[in-house]
């Protein structure tokens, strides 16, 4: 029983009959929150194809895929943390860079197997530190992951000496990075595969189920026999492993790695997740929607680049996009409650 719950209110509830079951009336804002992204993505792509020179070229589309893939992989993974109601994992910036640097630096010396093992160890450490602090110590996820970002980036810079690592030009990694299936680079295929796998995990496994149900009602989930701390660690682990794979993909694409290579991934991934319609209040959302959000955000920044609009404006656009998306989400929730 909640100690804060005013007792008189409980009494009032006891007397008041249950409110009428909610009518399934689709208010405009609710419909918009659910489906607006489909319309916007379609309109954006269509108008870009018609009005923006160079958008519809094969080269450009490959380019969009290349840029979208690592951010998208981070975003589909981070969707788990957002759906569990813990806002986001800012430390993906450090994690992607760590995985990329480990991939190239370690594989140069000890081969790919050792590199993957080392990167997985790093991902595991991130997941445990973030997950334990948030899941067991009930610390605020934003602040926890802000601090692990800095600790992680600091360690990476220290250990890497801030230098840039290059892979061998004909290495397997570089070949994978340059590989394409038609106009679609392998990295984009990895994104699609990750999306499908994670969608399966979220929707069709007991673990994914508890992540969703935790985001909707933490207490009912605990009383349903769930070790909620482990669920949180699991959600962070999914994010960390995705960030690791994103790091590999990024390293493969450029065949170089440096500690500053993933700046801004935290925010772009969050933008994709929220624009896709996953609620920052937790519980509501899906991995497939995040993929849609990734497409929207990537196409948008590509169009801005093609139109020669500076990086500053792109940042502003992302900020406004997030503000709009969370506003729509908040208004839809309010409409849904009435």
């Amino acid at each position: 029983m909640s100690k804060n719950e005013p007792i008189t209110q409980i009494n009032a509830m006891a007397q008041a009959p249950e409110e009428q079951p909610k009518q399934k009336s689709r208010r405009g804002v609710e419909w918009f929150a659910e489906n607006g992204i489909f319309v916007f993505t379609a309109v954006l792509i269509l108008s870009a194809a018609i009005f923006v020179d160079g958008f519809a070229s094969l080269q450009n589309i490959t380019d969009v895929f290349h840029r979208a893939a690592p951010i998208g992989i981070v975003a589909v993974g981070m969707t788990f943390v957002v759906i569990s109601g813990n806002y986001l994992d800012l430390s993906v910036v450090a994690q992607v860079a760590t995985a990329a640097v480990i991939m190239i630096a370690v594989s140069n010396e000890y081969g790919y197997f050792a590199a993957v093992l080392a990167a997985m160890l790093a991902a595991l450490i991130y997941a445990i530190v973030n997950g334990v602090a948030v899941g067991y110590f009930k610390a605020n996820a934003v602040i926890v992951t802000l601090s692990t970002t800095y600790v992680g980036l600091g360690l990476l810079r220290l250990l890497s000496g801030g230098s840039i690592f290059f892979g061998p030009p004909d290495g397997a990694l570089a070949q994978f990075g340059a590989g394409k299936l038609g106009p679609v680079p392998y990295s984009a295929l990895v994104l699609v595969a990750m999306t499908l796998i994670l969608a399966f995990v979220l929707n069709r496994t007991n673990f994914g189920f508890t992540v969703r149900s935790f985001g909707i009602n933490e207490r009912a989930t605990r009383l349903g026999g769930t070790n909620t701390g482990l669920v949180i660690i699991g959600a962070f682990l999914v994010t960390s492993l995705s960030a690791m794979i994103a790091g590999f993909v990024l390293a493969a694409f450029s065949n170089t790695a440096v500690s500053a290579m993933s700046t801004g991934y935290d925010f772009q991934a969050l933008a994709a997740i929220i624009v896709g319609g996953t609620s920052v209040f937790g519980g509501k959302g899906s991995v497939l929607r995040t993929l849609l959000g990734v497409i929207f955000v990537s196409v948008l920044s590509n169009v801005l680049v093609l139109l020669n609009i500076g990086f500053g404006y792109q940042q502003m656009a992302l900020g406004v996009l997030i503000a709009l998306a969370v506003t729509v989400d908040a208004l839809a929730r309010r409409a849904g409650k009435k």
Binding site: F311, Q315, G319
Partner: peptide, 12 residues
């Protein structure tokens, strides 16, 4: 979330 959006907007 709201001030995080502001963070990036202002950086822009």
């Amino acid at each position: 979330i709201w001030t995080l959006g502001m963070l990036f907007f202002l950086r822009g």
